[in-house]
Design a protein around this nucleic acid. Sequence first.
DNA 1: TAGATTGTTAATCGATTAACAATC
DNA 2: TAGATTGTTAATCGATTAACAATC
Lengths: 217, 217
Amino acid sequence: MKQREISAAVIRRLPRYYRYLGELLQNDVVRISSKELSNRMRVTASQIRQDLNNFGGFGQQGYGYNVEYLHSEIGKILGLDVQHNMIIIGAGNLGQALANYNFEKVGFNLIGIFDTNPRLKGVSVRGIEIYMMDMLDEFVATHQVDVVTLTVPKRQAVEIGHHLEEIGIRAIWNFAPTDLNVSEDVCVKNVHLNESLMTLSYEYRAMHTQDEESGRD
Amino acid sequence: MKQREISAAVIRRLPRYYRYLGELLQNDVVRISSKELSNRMRVTASQIRQDLNNFGGFGQQGYGYNVEYLHSEIGKILGLDVQHNMIIIGAGNLGQALANYNFEKVGFNLIGIFDTNPRLKGVSVRGIEIYMMDMLDEFVATHQVDVVTLTVPKRQAVEIGHHLEEIGIRAIWNFAPTDLNVSEDVCVKNVHLNESLMTLSYEYRAMHTQDEESGRD
DNA sequence: TAGATTGTTAATCGATTAACAATC
DNA sequence: TAGATTGTTAATCGATTAACAATC
């Protein structure tokens, strides 16, 4: 039952389908065609059908897709039906902000927060305790930790990433502005906020440059 | 001097080049070849040269690229040499965490934070005052506001996005888990954290599924 | 049944990689 | 000059779009 390797481009679109279908569901929409969904999402109907058919035929000719069923199936594809335990390393502003997020609804349970700052020792965020970093190895040995959210400064991130691999962590959600140098066996998802901002900067300028030019004609 | 439309794929890679070159610069590396850079960054040398040549010839045959010069040129392409004024709307955990970020080094100056919560009125984050939302229009009318960072709950985001367009804002860095329904004239950069986490969830499961299969043989 | 819409194959388009002549 | 490495063209690869037969 091995499924063909799915391209990253397809995977990146799945959460957005999931979100739109969730909204339709809330609005009690029962069925939707790829055409109608394509209008709302501003992608081609062809792309929607191609994307979905990477995973199987979820629709019905002449009818379209059942919203509830398709929503649920995409959830399963994304693994949202599986519970994961998560810890956050780095209880600075961003780490604490993320701790307050509600990632349980996509299957991630926060079970611990770690930092080196002794002033944070024993402090709780949303009922989750902040531990000192020297407790990390023991914690990981005695708890099922599936995913680590990494919100530490750049210079510590690479080292911690390496250590996480050594103690058996296999998934890292990395907010540090650096590439982690871990093996292929560890899946890393980077969120590089300053890179995001740089591309906004580029687009902003590109837009203005264009304005000037069209004004010039 | 109009340059051809550059693909989004290229633009997304520029900040990463910029970061690697910045690190080389800090390590006093003077020159680098596309080959050497490709080894470090794990992309092809061909792609590096193609990407850069979208914007001009920054290298020299037989020599490679001058690190300082290339770093600076990519910075200019990204518009990092231009100062932008930014405000944050939504002073919750994430908004305040972002307020503490140091985005000045990529050219973004935070000049105001807005929220509806009266308990935050007059509070300052890193010396930047939190204003009430009813002050927004006046603030935008009397200050140069180039970019808005939007960290409000989903249900307010669309409405505020629409309002921002009306009062002349042309760039939004959106953290709300929704698409903003603004015109093409506004550039929007979305940071959808839960979608990022969902793709991590997918990859994590895909990796484990593969393990089971290879174990089965 | 007739109409609608999928699943899927074929055509197109764009992005990546390879190759190499130009040139420092 | 000889060696190295770019800039750029050509080849390949993959992703998107179009088309349509299958079928509900």
